[in-house]
Amino acid sequence: MTISGEFLAFISLALVAVIGGVLLLNLTKVVHMVVGLVFTFIAIAGIYILLSAEFLAVVQILIYSGAITIIMLFGIMLTRHNDEESDSKGGGWKKVLLFLGVLAFGAAFYIGIYNLDFGTEPAALHEKNTEQLGVALYSDFVIPFELMSVLLLVALVGAIVLSRNDGEKEGDKE
């Protein structure tokens, strides 16, 4: 097996993504967790670039690394939360069991994909990626696309209804 630059780039981006996810789960301050999440999002965008999916990489950086992270930071800063660390019993055993679980998952994943064969069907992967994505989205997947827009609209209306104060409701006009 020859080690290419693409392989090294993938390994380094995958390590950054996994380390960002682990930091997200293990840090105690919420803003630090968001920084770990940003590292994961940017590493995933780098993996998209390695897969010649430049449009998805740009969307990943613009939407997730930018907008979603800013929305999460605003949500964190506008809500009350306790940054005090709670004492948990059995923390050492939990970490050992978690590590063993991660190793078992990694081993099962490796065994599952080791001899996986996708066939040798030729595909034009590097030609007009954005055009192919648009054609597929608006021809084959137009109904799920529209249903997702309705779902997002319902979520927005629900968030507005839930965020109203009790004094702003129509029945409380006295």
Rank of each mutant, 00 (worst) to 15 (best):
Q132V: 05
I76D: 01
V96P: 00
E170Q: 15
I19W: 14
S139N: 07
A104I: 08
I61P: 10
I143F: 14
I61S: 04
D166L: 11
E170W: 15
D172P: 00
A108K: 04
G167I: 11
I44G: 03
G90I: 03
Y110P: 00
I42A: 10
I111K: 08
L25V: 05
L78C: 04
T40W: 13
E170S: 14
T120H: 14
D166C: 00
I76M: 04
G112W: 06
D140K: 12
D87H: 15
I49P: 04
G106I: 06
L156M: 12
F7V: 01
E85Y: 12
K95V: 03
L27N: 05
F41K: 12
Q60P: 11
T28Y: 12
L25D: 02
V31E: 13
L97N: 04
T69E: 07
I44Y: 07
I63M: 10
V38A: 12
V34R: 14
M1F: 06
A107F: 15
F41W: 09
S52F: 13
G134F: 15
A43T: 09
T28D: 09
D166P: 01
G20E: 10
A104Q: 03
E85M: 13
I19S: 11
I143M: 15
G75Y: 11
M33I: 12
L62P: 06
G92S: 07
N115L: 01
G75V: 03
V34W: 14
F41R: 11
G119H: 03
I76K: 03
N129H: 04
Y110T: 03
G90V: 06
V59T: 08
A53Q: 10
D172I: 03
L62H: 11
